[in-house]
Design a binder for these strands. Structure first.
Length: 861
RNA sequence: GCCCGCCUGGCGGAACCGGUAGACGCAACGGACUUAAAAUCCGUUCCUGGGCAACCGGGGUGGGGGUUCGAGUCCCUCGGCGGGCACCA
């Protein structure tokens, strides 16, 4: 074909995309409202932190969500697909410190920029529902709900150990402590006991665990991680009397069956008993201080030696007559778990064994492994933790481990020296942050009345605008006037709580706010009842525990306060992989960004500016530190959003990491153009829109129709199952088949129309702008986005003739074209008649023939 | 240390429930068009032996073993990579 100039050979993505985006916006195509007559579908991607620029991770996430939203919309669902901003957080304050901008200004500027960037992607979002969590119109509802939670006992304040940075004068999260030092100040972090706010997530520990089984559309991996995080363990609480003390000591164990193998008791350094002894014993005090200095970082735990200090106290075994056990303070016992005290059974716990060997304590085996002899069995340096039969254990002798656990627990209960107990690893969620850029905890501290919640009518408690970040610590504390208020209770002088909430609180309910973003209360009940739960939630695995667990808790807390009627916020969850890129490094160790390098004719990578050759490193997650990032806006400016979206969905399965390559984008861009060009070229010769299917059709035409309808069926299943890479491959296949038919002269004009219309429809969720363009080119006046999803003709999905593999002893010897569902004798005969089969048989007799209908004929000799 | 996942051409990956391994794309190579290049179009490409050729054979899904008429797929085992948790009593 002759080149008729630029207009015919090149698709102007930039112009076309802007045009369609404008039309969708004008038609308010994606604005949604409740409609009880239609089935709803709520698609949500984890909302972004407004860092200032979108990155490829966002592009991948929002492309996937948009494919789902557009597909479900075409299937007739009333689709809610909103977007907002997770707008509180530390980076805004850092910007305030470094660039002297107000966090609010910085945040809203960033939102402005990112919204413009996102809009270029052509996402089917209902922008009328946009929310920013730093807006008082959002967080005032959070404060309102906090008051409800307070009343319901789901929020409370207690003293708790925290990581304290003495220079920055703030609490640090565990993630912000690196090798025992504050991440910003570099100062050694101290453990301090501070009054902190908590959400009682543990109240729902059992439910949060058991309901994981009712989330079949969540990845197993995430459910498993949450299971482990909640960490339910069954055991017993056992009471040990202490010689010379009135108060008994309680311990928790999951192995009450090994109670007769006890040889010591160990207390946490933070245990009240340890602290009480320390008051009269300087040596104990210095040991406790040594334990505390060890800190909580992973490295220190790993390298720390198991150490104990014998307090000289004696505990009396609850089942032994006058049996005394030494009481140690040990550095490996955590106050936060169980009762902060344990009994040590060295024979059946490795850590206890190490401890016993170090301090010369007894090692008595009480569980006999199968096949061992009770007289000769001994423990050396490896504890036995498996199943077996109880020995040396009085009334438990001869029982299995499980049976023994039950029996001993029952006996302890009779004696009132213990009872069965379930413990969780999960702790209550500490939500206090000593930060400015967060939602203020709506509480006033009064010298007379104590803690007084801010009355609902006084909400919101807004952040003061005039703050200074000149000195370390919480600006809310330093503010001259903000925190000084009258006590709402007695009218006397009070002080505002200056803690703000962890930003995870905002993200724990934003999905509910999206249902009715203008509601005067936190939510409008009819709106949440209609829209919730979220049918499909999409985001990174990094939120597998924190955000997803908090949201599950918060939903229950909202239910308890009457805001919602559901338990689980997200019925479907998909965790997408990361976007990676290869890395470039110069000889002197500088990292270079993909934009700064060129590939020469030999395939060597050079720095564009200097021509210096570069080392190409392995592909890693795009990150600023490695400089291996590609700016989505530049890609969209060059190739258009559809190309970026198409490449994002190609090749790699969505749950896996993908590699971003320049060649890959080029390939996607070529396909966009090829598709556009083939429709432009073919459209003039097609039958008019709406022409009924002709009675007569050529073989090639019928064959192509089969491909078309199999494509509909295949793409539909692929999209339903999040197999976007396969959907992409199928669209390629259909495009190839149509090009082939078009190449065969006049071809079947009707079939070509059906084919290209189908192609446009199937590609629309993934490349929405191009699809509209093709639809228009094919002669339609309507918007494709309002067209229904195509339906496959079931008759065309089954072939009349099938290709069957013919094997001899499982080895492929040839193929056979047979009528569908061919009967055994005919199929067998045809198979045996194949020359390759006869050759393989070499005259040997056939023992039997395995026939898998329409698939395989296996001749066994 | 414990738990989970993964391993298929030069690369990303496909292969429904055990039934023709390598779809589709990238890259590479060859050809056409062009004064030339780019773009585009056509063709080839898992490895390997034989043959001028159409063609005929052998091997192959991280290694080893097993189940089965038949294994990328199921089981055992070893190795490698990735992720999660980590003093949890």
């Amino acid at each position: 074909m002759k080149d008729h100039g630029q207009a015919v050979t090149r698709y102007n993505a930039k112009e076309a995309e802007a045009r369609w985006q404008k039309l969708w916006a004008e038609a308010r195509t994606f604005e949604t409202r409740e409609d009880p007559k239609r089935p709803k579908y709520y698609v949500l991607e984890m909302f972004p932190y407004p860092s200032g620029r979108i990155h490829m991770g966002h592009v991948r996430n929002y492309t996937m969500g948009d494919v789902v939203a557009r597909y479900k919309r075409a299937r007739g669902f009333n689709v809610l697909h909103p977007m907002g901003w997770d707008a509180f957080g530390l980076p805004a304050e850092n910007a305030a410190i470094e660039a002297k901008v107000h966090p609010r200004q910085w945040t809203y500027d960033n939102i402005e920029q990112m919204r413009a960037q996102l809009k270029l992607m052509g996402l089917s979002l209902d922008w009328s529902r946009e929310i920013a969590t730093c807006d008082p119109s959002y967080y005032k509802h959070e404060q309102r709900m906090f008051l409800d939670f307070l009343k319901a006992g789901l929020a409370y304040r207690k003293e708790s150990w925290v990581n304290w940075d003495p220079v920055d004068q703030t609490v640090l999260a565990n993630e912000q402590v690196i090798d025992g030092l504050g991440w910003r100040s570099g100062a050694p972090v101290e453990r301090r006991k501070l009054r902190q706010w908590f959400f009682r997530i543990t109240a729902y520990a059992d439910e949060l665990l058991s309901e994981l089984d009712n989330l079949p559309r969540w990845p197993d991996k995430v459910r498993l991680m949450q299971q482990k995080w909640i960490g339910r363990s069954t055991g017993a609480r056992v009471s040990f009397a202490l010689k010379g003390r009135a108060e008994p000591l309680e311990i928790f164990t999951t192995r009450p069956d090994t109670l007769f193998g006890a040889s010591f008791i160990a207390l946490s350094a933070d245990h009240p008993l340890a602290e009480s002894i320390a008051r009269s014993d300087a040596k104990v005090l210095s040991f406790i201080e040594e334990c505390r200095r060890l800190g909580t970082s992973e490295a220190s735990i790993e390298t720390a030696e198991k150490k104990g200090y014998d307090t000289g106290l004696k505990a009396l075994h609850p089942l032994g007559d006058g049996w005394e056990l030494p009481v140690f303070i040990a550095n490996f016992v955590l106050m936060e778990y169980g009762t902060g005290a344990i009994f040590g059974c060295p024979a059946h716990d490795q850590r206890d064994l190490d401890f016993a060997r170090k301090y010369g304590l007894g090692v008595v085996p009480v569980v006999l492994p199968p096949g061992e002899d009770a007289k000769s069995f001994a423990i050396a340096f490896e504890a036995y933790v498996g199943d077996g039969v109880l020995i040396n254990s009085a009334f438990l002798d001869g029982l299995g481990v499980e049976e023994a656990k039950m029996r001993v627990t029952a006996r302890l209960e009779e004696l009132k020296r213990g009872r069965g107990e379930v413990n969780f690893r999960l702790r209550d969620w500490g939500v206090s942050r000593q930060r400015y850029w967060g939602c203020p905890v709506p509480v006033i501290n009064c010298a007379t009345c104590g803690m007084v919640p801010v009355p609902a009518k006084d909400l919101p408690v807004t952040l003061p605008e005039d703050v200074s970040f000149d000195r370390p610590g919480n600006p809310l504390d330093h503010h001259p006037t903000w925190k000084h208020v009258k006590c709402p209770h007695c009218g006397g002088p009070g002080e505002r709580e200056s803690d703000t909430f962890d930003t995870f609180v905002e993200s724990s309910w934003y999905f509910a706010r999206f249902c009715s973003p203008q509601a005067p209360g936190p939510v409008a009940r009819d709106a949440v009842d209609y829209w919730l739960p979220v049918d499909q939630y999409i985001g990174g695995v990094e939120h597998a525990i924190l955000h997803l667990l908090y949201s599950r808790f918060y939903t229950r807390a909202m239910r308890r306060s009457g805001y919602l009627g559901i338990d689980e916020p997200f019925t479907g969850l998909f965790t997408q992989g990361m976007v990676c890129h290869e890395t470039y490094r110069s000889a002197d160790g500088r990292w270079l960004s993909p934009a700064e390098v060129t590939r020469d004719d030999q395939g060597h990578v050079r720095e564009t500016a200097t021509g210096e050759p570069l080392a190409v490193g392995r592909s890693e997650k795009m990150s600023k530190s490695r400089k291996n990032t590609v700016d989505p806006t530049e890609i969209i400016a060059t190739y258009g959003a559809d190309t970026a979206r198409w490449f994002m969905l190609s090749d790699s399965p969505p749950e896996r990491d993908m590699e971003w390559t320049a060649q890959g984008v080029e390939g996607a861009w070529r396909f966009v153009n090829r598709l556009w060009r083939s429709v432009v070229q073919v459209s003039d010769g097609l039958v008019p829109v709406g022409t009924p299917r002709p009675q007569e059709m050529s073989e090639a035409g019928i064959a192509t129709r089969r491909v078309i309808h199999k494509s509909i069926d295949g793409v539909t299943q692929d999209l339903e199952q999040f197999r976007f890479n396969r959907a992409v491959a199928r669209v390629h296949e259909l495009s190839n088949a149509l090009a082939e038919l078009a190449g065969e002269g006049a071809g079947e004009r009707w079939v070509l129309r059906e084919g290209y219309e189908t192609l446009a429809r199937l590609a629309a969720p993934m490349m929405p702008h191009l699809a509209e363009e093709l639809w228009r080119q094919l002669g339609h006046a309507s918007l494709l986005v309002d067209e229904p999803w195509p339906l496959a003709d079931a008759i065309l999905l089954v072939d009349d003739t099938v290709t069957v593999a013919v094997q001899v002893n499982g080895k492929l010897r040839g193929t056979l074209a047979l009528p569908r569902d061919a009967a055994r004798p005919a199929a067998e005969e045809a198979a045996l008649a194949l020359p390759a089969v006869a050759r393989a048989l070499e005259g040997r007799s056939v023992r039997r023939v395995i026939l898998v209908p329409n698939r395989v004929i296996n001749v066994v000799i």
